[in-house]
Amino acid sequence: MDAFLDVLAAVFLIIGCLLSLVAGIGLMTFPDLLTRLHAATKPQVLGFLLIFIALAIHLRSWAVVPVLALAWGMQLLTAPVSAHMIGRSGYRTKHVSHKSIYSDELAEAIRAVEAEQRHDQGPPPQQQ
């Protein structure tokens, strides 16, 4: 039974490390901001989960499970949220390649907000 658990932990550890490696390679090779953010968040969160499961199996102690669950939960909460905020700021500062966007729903929302702001400010002052 111990040998099986060690092999299972090793398999989870290797797959988790490979997913984290894929995330790092994606960060270096993908062409634009949005695809890099996708590569940074999707495999990284799953990779950390598999690494933490492997660690819990290897240590064989219920005392580390809450700590590992908390660490993975923080990773699950912070990685996608930070990638979302970076993506929005990159979009607003024109660092996003529009060739890779299939449907640009944010452009419509930004135009609506800008039109509303112009309407609230009133007409421009007349120059004499």
Rank of each mutant, 00 (worst) to 15 (best):
T35D: 13
A56C: 11
E114F: 00
I57P: 00
A63I: 09
S103R: 14
P125Q: 13
H58R: 14
L21G: 14
L77E: 04
S103N: 14
K94G: 13
V22R: 02
G26L: 07
S100L: 07
L77D: 05
R88F: 12
A112V: 08
L33Y: 00
A3F: 04
S100G: 03
R36S: 01
T29L: 11
S61M: 15
L76V: 07
T41G: 13
I57G: 09
A54Q: 01
L27D: 06
I53Y: 02
T78C: 09
I51R: 00
T93D: 01
I110L: 13
A56P: 01
R60Y: 03
G122Y: 12
V65Q: 05
G26C: 10
W62M: 13
L50R: 02
F12N: 02
V113I: 12
I57S: 05
T93H: 00
A115E: 15
K42W: 15
D104K: 03
K42S: 07
Q127S: 15
M28D: 02
R88C: 09
K42C: 07
L37G: 02
L76A: 15
G122E: 11
P66I: 05
H84G: 10
V81S: 06
S89H: 05
L18C: 09
S89W: 08
M74G: 14
L59W: 10
Y102T: 11
I51W: 01
P125H: 08
I25P: 05
P123Q: 15
V81A: 15
Q126D: 04
S82G: 06
S100F: 10
I25V: 15
R88A: 09
A54E: 03
L50G: 02
H84S: 04
Q75C: 07
K94C: 09
P123K: 06
A63M: 12
A109R: 10
L76Q: 03
I15Y: 01
A109V: 09
I53A: 15
H119F: 07
V22Q: 05
P124H: 03
I53L: 15
A54Y: 00
M1V: 10
S89E: 03
A40V: 04
G87N: 02
H98P: 04
L18E: 04
S100M: 05
A40P: 07
L106R: 00
V96K: 00
A71W: 02
M74K: 14
Q75S: 14
A112F: 04
V7Y: 06
A107S: 13
Q44T: 12
L55Q: 07
G47M: 00
E116W: 08
P31K: 06
F30K: 14
L49W: 07
V65W: 08
H58T: 07
L8Y: 07
G73M: 04
V45W: 05
P123Y: 04
L34N: 05
L21T: 14
E105L: 02
I101H: 02
V96P: 00
W72V: 10
M1K: 10
G16I: 02
